[in-house]
């Protein structure tokens, strides 16, 4: 659990890069990343989720049906600066692998930190989507990311 956690909740409107937005409840409570697990998801080239493993379902708090077919930004936490995701898309659209630390929003409003890696899926020379694999980050990397992202908001 982060030192900054207050357990308090707030109502926010989260705006996405495609012009849409949604109202969400955000709770200052961290859910610890489970040891030994990888969260795995795949999207189409537009970021629409096509595959979610059980760890993803468990940690996000959504059902598989709620995740498949929606944009991956459903996990976006309002504390994450948009510049971080701009960097992600710029990297993977160039066909490269992206690494980063991400604070994700759960369905119940609480959050979890991940070390994420995203790679383009190339089949017969053509981009068919992206695979994202998340693993457990260290507390020091989470702390550094919290401090960095606060300056980028």
């Amino acid at each position: 659990m982060s030192d900054q956690d207050t357990g308090e909740s707030r109502e926010v409107t989260i705006s996405y890069h495609d012009g849409t937005s949604r109202a969400a409840t955000v709770v200052d409570r961290e859910v610890p990343y489970p040891d030994g697990k990888l969260i795995v998801s795949r999207t189409d080239p537009n970021g629409i989720i096509t595959h979610a493993n059980q760890a993803f379902i468990d940690m996000s708090g959504y059902t598989r049906d709620e995740l498949i077919g929606v944009n991956h930004y459903i996990l976006r936490h309002p504390d994450m600066p948009s510049v971080a995701f701009a960097g992600l898309w710029e990297t993977i659209e160039a066909g490269k692998k992206w690494h980063g630390y991400v604070k994700n929003l759960r369905k119940d409003g609480s959050y979890y930190w991940v070390k994420a890696t995203v790679i383009p899926n190339i089949r017969n020379g053509k981009l068919v989507g992206y695979t994202s694999v998340r693993r457990k980050p260290s507390r020091s990397k989470i702390k550094a990311s919290e401090e960095l992202y606060a300056t980028l908001m």
Partner: peptide, 11 residues
């Protein structure tokens, strides 16, 4: 197979 290879690539 491709999925497994992609996953290993991320690791």
């Amino acid at each position: 197979t491709e999925f497994m290879i992609d996953l290993i690539d991320t690791l």
